[in-house]
Design a protein around this nucleic acid. Structure first.
Length: 384
DNA sequence: TAGGCCATCTGGTCCT
DNA sequence: AGGACCAGATGGCCTA
């Protein structure tokens, strides 16, 4: 941007005015009662030259006026604010500065740029109302976004009321989940449980990885224990292997449930307690009518059936106790020997099952076994 | 106390 | 013109 031709002329005047201007600004910004003066000179403040050496933080730091007292946007002299104001009708003649000569007029340097309008009290009020309305809309928008994120949290593989996934982790896990399901459909075969968990946890933070992996492992252990109790063996027909190893199991693991596989019956008793269709009927927060299951619903993603499958193939029930999982992300070696499920949650190096650090904080951890849009397809596939 | 996460405010941009 | 969307800034809260 070319400098105006009058710069050489006014430059000495600007420099000479700096000390006095600084003192005036300090006084103006430190005394709310001088707001009209601030308004009067706001256009001058807007001058890019006087702003060059000032950061936004400096502006805010030196301006003690709160949002309720003053519209920052106007003080900061955004062109947007002025352009909005420009549309107001009754003050068309209130151009702050008239075209004048090149010389600095009086004590003030000439202002360049678009014409600024005086910030009358009425204009200030309108601007403030406009800003407040915009803020309210923005709040509503963000609340809607958060509601959508909450709904997403409820349909990703692991859910905890108290230990909510962060927004970014929710999105990552959802992406991984979609990817994992897509891979299952595309490949048309049972996924390797390790790679499945690996896919789910890809790019997740270590705590989230622990949460997800711990969640899946818990369900696995419950399932395995129940299998042991009921059938005394792991082989034979494997109706549990699918994306819903327990039919529509919507277990909500309490701490005690997490610790004992014998509770898996009670967990399963929650099956069929609520229908998926009841979740997404209005687009808003779902209502859960079942007194037995007050948690949210999620798709059938538990892979305990997968674990079951692995047990059938290579792990004896006795070995299940030492069945541990390593979950080093992002570097879980792909060349790991087959059958060696060395998943360790986190850097603690805990082995041999669920470490309390990984599980206990999530007493209301949910394992998700509800219907999902992909359920029918998956179900059909796995039961063919 | 540093860092992560979040809500909110704010100004800019684009669209209707 | 007004609303939606976005990104930056800021401050509060929580946790390791």
């Amino acid at each position: 941007m070319a400098l105006p031709s009058d710069v050489p002329t006014i430059w000495p005047g600007i420099i000479a005015e700096l000390p006095r201007s600084a003192a005036m600004l300090t006084r103006l910004f430190s005394d709310p009662s001088l707001l009209p003066e601030v308004q009067k000179y706001s256009g001058w403040m807007d001058d890019s030259e006087s702003e060059d050496s000032k950061t936004k933080d400096d502006d805010q730091e030196h301006c003690p006026l709160g949002d309720d007292d003053l519209d920052d946007g106007d003080l900061r002299g955004s062109s947007r604010a002025h352009s909005e104001i420009a549309g107001e009708d009754e003050e068309e003649d209130e151009i702050e500065e008239e075209d004048g000569g090149d010389e600095a007029e009086g004590d003030r340097p000439k202002k360049r740029g678009p014409k600024k309008r005086k910030m009358t009290q009425a204009r200030m009020e309108r601007s403030k109302v406009r800003r407040q309305k915009a803020n309210a809309r923005e709040r509503t928008r963000m609340h809607d976004l958060n509601s959508a994120l909450d709904n997403l949290r409820k349909v990703v593989p692991c859910y905890s009321k108290t230990q909510k996934l962060s927004k970014i982790e929710t999105l990552r896990l959802a992406k991984n989940y979609i990817w994992a399901l897509s891979e299952i459909l595309r490949n048309g075969k049972r996924p390797d449980v390790v790679s499945y968990v690996q896919t789910l946890c890809k790019g997740l933070s270590q705590p989230t990885t622990n949460l997800v992996a711990g969640c899946l492992q818990l369900n696995s252990r419950n399932f395995l224990t129940e299998q042991c109790q009921e059938g005394g063996r792991f082989n034979g027909p494997n109706p549990s292997f699918s994306m819903h190893p327990y039919p529509y199991q919507c277990s909500r693991l309490s701490g005690s449930q997490c610790q004992s596989g014998s509770n898996s019956h009670s967990i399963r008793n929650h099956a069929y307690c609520s229908g998926y269709d009841s979740v997404y009927t209005g687009g808003g927060s779902p209502e859960y009518n079942s007194p037995e299951y007050e948690g949210p619903l999620s798709p059938p993603v538990c892979i305990n059936g997968n674990f079951s499958l692995k047990q059938q193939e290579s792990v004896s029930p006795a070995a299940e106790k030492s069945y541990h999982y390593s979950m080093h992300y992002p570097a879980l070696p792909s060349s790991r020997p087959a059958g060696s499920h060395n998943l360790v949650f986190g850097s603690s190096g805990v082995r041999g099952g669920v470490h309390s650090e990984n599980v206990l904080p999530y007493h209301d951890m949910h394992l998700h076994h509800e219907r999902a849009p992909v359920y029918e397809e998956l179900n059909a596939f796995f039961h063919n």
